[in-house]
């Protein structure tokens, strides 16, 4: 096994930055950073490799223990400007096929009588001016993604156990075992899943599992310029997302279906489904 990475620019905090290793060019260092952070030096608690790696290192990227985390996502709809950066970042990060969306942004124009909703190309190219044929009294954007429900209808219906929920609270699809029956796509009330035209298996938001298990934030959160999208770990006592869920008035989408989403929304309007 290679030398463990000393530190990574994983915390997207402005102050955090690692000094380049001596004797290396900066570019080489950066390339190494990415290679290592994408490398195989990750272990799971209780997994067969956990003993081999030892429980010594807790630095990001070296050892990952899924029982030490419980992720949650917070969307403050009042902050979203509908720039679509998140949708583009998601597509680039996860190689999402064109016309399919792991995340998207909806725009609501609401009047006393009627509501107009649109999401041109999932909001990937941003939003243009809009004309509605009624008097809209309020308008806002709502980012959407997989809710990573605790009582997921999608995992429930998977006939082969290709879809599952990890201990840290992420709903994933095993692309090697998915038979492409699309039952999960039908069962998701939020329209978060699709069959990839490339792999013919079900695909969905993973909260960028390849990032969050290295201490990075999901790509959509990483690029959100307004703080609309926030990602947190409920097992950290002073986590801002945890504090918001604990103390603010929050909503979840389609609460009547009792899917127990782990995506929480601040300032959710009744028109949003």
């Amino acid at each position: 096994m290679e030398k463990p990475p000393r530190s990574l620019p994983v915390v997207p905090d402005e102050h955090a930055s690692a000094p380049p290793e001596p004797g290396h060019g900066r570019r080489e260092f950066l390339a190494n950073v990415l290679r290592l952070s994408g490398g195989a030096l990750v272990f799971l608690a209780g997994g067969p490799a956990a003993e081999a790696g030892g429980a010594s290192g807790k630095e990001a990227g070296e050892a990952y223990h899924w029982d030490e985390h419980s992720y949650a996502y917070l969307v403050d709809t009042s902050k979203c400007i509908g720039c679509g950066s998140c949708v583009r970042a998601c597509a680039a990060e996860n190689q999402v096929p064109d016309g399919f969306f792991r995340t998207w942004v909806e725009r609501y124009v609401v009047g006393m009588e009627r509501t107009h909703v649109d999401s041109p190309n999932g909001g990937k190219d941003g939003f243009g001016p809009i004309q509605v044929d009624f008097v809209g009294t309020k308008s806002f954007f709502v980012p959407k993604l997989c809710n990573h429900c605790r009582a997921t209808p999608c995992i429930q219906v998977c006939p082969v156990g290709a879809s599952y929920r990890t201990h840290d609270g992420v709903v994933l699809v095993d692309a090697e075992r998915c038979i492409g029956c699309a039952y999960c796509v039908q069962a998701c009330p939020y329209g978060s899943r699709f069959l990839s035209p490339l792999t013919h298996t079900a695909e969905k938001c993973t909260w960028c599992y390849h990032r969050i298990t290295k201490g990075l934030r999901p790509a959509c959160v990483e690029v959100c310029p307004t703080g609309t999208r926030q990602f947190g770990d409920l097992k950290r006592p002073n986590d801002p997302v945890r504090l918001a869920i604990e103390h603010d008035r929050i909503g979840v989408l389609q609460a009547h279906l009792r899917t127990e989403p782990n995506c929480y929304y601040l300032h959710l309007d009744k028109e949003v489904r």
Partner: peptide, 18 residues
Amino acid sequence: NVREQMNVRRPAHAGPAA
């Protein structure tokens, strides 16, 4: 598959620090 998912690809976004 959990480990496969963790290493499915290298992260594309590195943040301003990088």
